[in-house]
Structure formats: C-alpha cells, structure tokens
Design a protein around this nucleic acid. Sequence first.
DNA 1: AAGTCGGGGGG
DNA 2: CCCCCAGACTT
Length: 370
Amino acid sequence: MTDSPALPHPEPDPPPEAVVVDGSARGFSTRLLAWFDHSGRHDLPWQHPRTPYRVWLSEIMLQQTQVRTAAPYFERFVAALPDLPALAEAELEQVLALWSGLGYYARARNLHAAARHCMALHDGELPRDIDALVALPGIGRSTAAAILAQAWGDRHAILDGNVKRVLARYHGVAGWPGAPAVERSLWAFAETHLPDTRLADYTQAQMDLGATLCTRTAPACVLCPLQAECIARIEGRTAELPTSKPGKPLPQRHACVLWLEDADGRVLLQQRPPTGIWSSLWTLPQADDEVAARAWFKHHCDGDFARGIGKPPISHVFSHFKLELLPRYWRDVALHPQVRDNGDLRWVARAQLGALGIPAPIRRLLEAGA
DNA sequence: AAGTCGGGGGG
DNA sequence: CCCCCAGACTT
C-alpha cells in the first residue's frame, strides 16, 4: 500500500541505501512500513478521500479519543460540513451540535475558529506549514505534524500516545512520558526514525502499531515487526514501559515502634497477625501513637518509659500508604512475669535474626544497632 | 509542573 | 475504583 496517487505532490524514489534493513535507525521505518502494508488499517473513514480538511478534522476528533468512538462523529460531521469553507460559514452552534457527545468541546470551538482564521489568512485553505498550523487554535506540534505527513506526505515526526508507548518500549525509555524531559527524549527518537518517503503511510503505521499490537496491556509482541530490537520485549519490561503517571501522594501514616533489649542484648520481637500488612512476619512491637506505646510499655515491661531513646524515623512505602515508623530504644528491659516470652512475643538473640522473617526496614534498623 | 476538559473502555 | 486514550491550553 502506498500513498494515494491522487496526492498533488508525489514523492521522489528513495535512494537505494535508504531501504536497507540493517537493524540501524533506518530499519525501524522499513520494518514498520512492510508490516503496515499487510496489517495496517487502510479503511478508516478519513482515509477515503484523504484531503487536508478531512485529515485535520480526524486528528482533532482523535485527540484523547479512540478511533471507534470518533468514527461515527466524523462521518456525521463531514456529511454536514464537507469542506473548510462550509465549516467556516457554519454557526458555532451547529458545530457544537455535531460535536455533542464527543467531549472536550474546546476542540470544536477551536476547530471552528481555526477554519475562520484560514478563510481570513490562508486563502480558505489549511496552510502547508508547520508553524502556521501550530499557530491555529487546537493544533499543537504533533497534530500539525500528523496533518502535514498524512495530507501531503511532508516529513515531520509525530508523538502521540501511541508513538510514545512504542518508542518508550522500543528504546527502553523509563519515566512517565508526560514529563518534559522524557518527552524531549522521545521526540528525539521519533526524529531519528523518520523515513525519506511514504510519510503518510509511515505516520499511520506508527499509530496502527500502537493501537493494534503495541497496546498498553498485553502487547502482541510475537506479531510485532520491531520485536527483534525492542528493549522492553528483550528485557521483559513491556508491563512496566511506558512508566505510568505518578499518582497522587499516598496518605501518610505514623506508628511508634518499641525497640526493647534485655540484659543479654536480645531484642523483643512480635509476630504480626496472619492477615494485613507484614502478615505473620516478626517485627518490633508497634503502637499507633505515643499514648498507645506508653500503655503497651506499662502493661508489658518493668522500667521507665521516659528513659527510652528516640531514634531517627524510618519511612516505608506500601502500595496504598506511606508509613513513618518512630522507633524508641530501651536497654536492660525485663518483661513482667505474667507476660512471658511465649506465643507471639519472643526474645531473640542478634545472631538469630537471620532465621526469622523480618520486614526489610525493621531488619535494617536492628542490624544497624542501637 | 500541574490542572482542566469528557466520554468511553478496560483491568 | 483507577488509569488511559491519535493533546492542547491555561494557570
């Protein structure tokens, strides 16, 4: 499959060395285009006919919107407003009505305003210029590049969600793609892979790969034309790449831990219940706050709570909260006779710590010593 | 750098 | 319930 023969600016034949599949940067586009020819999507509504106006409209509708969702809206929209002048002459009210249900209605307002800009400034046509396109409302760098590549075959890199996912995996780029530093890196990779010909097909191919094979969950690597060099597949990291968006800060919880040593230098450990955090592991006795810690101490131990020495807090992150542990240390402690070393409470010699299941942050605390 | 816009899909 | 999707724009 090649670019439409109806395009006004046919591209020249590529230099022979440009199509050699050698595993270098050039191999990326060569393999991708070969895959696109037999497995790409060639019957999307905006591809027939592929006019600048229809490409533009489709790119706007497809911002943060999946093909299946946008397609019926596209058909209805172009049936009502088949070209740029028709859009410009329409009332905003009608444009919004055609958009109704798609969401992100600023896209419709921008689309309408951009059409009127084009009537006033660009002789009623979409400008074939990256900067002029970006200057129009609703068109950013990637959308402008997609329009130029798809409508005219011009050589521009795109970087939408699909391409970000493909490139993050292919090059093993860690970090959330929304972060500016990561995004800069991905743009650079996108530029290096640009072929010299078939830019419309190449642009579509990237999006098809991301949408149909290199999906967010369960990518079909065995079918992928890029599997041989894909870092994420080779290293088994497709589930971790691209790095997901950092969530909101986890709720912070606090707890007091009581670090008790007896006269022999043994430490008092307590086995946690079989459910919940650190289930069945051995940890230091723990209380929700200092009042509870004081009560626990009074109930279990001889001696003076106030003589305990505060230690630097330990921070630990769980999947759903952060826990800050405030350790307090006593030496030469004895238990009350009625709360013996038995059941879930046990004096443990330092040399025996390795034989017990102890949470990592607690183990680090104990092994660092008082 | 973070928030906003939005309906739909998937885990 | 959350995150994500052919992003761009504002604060």
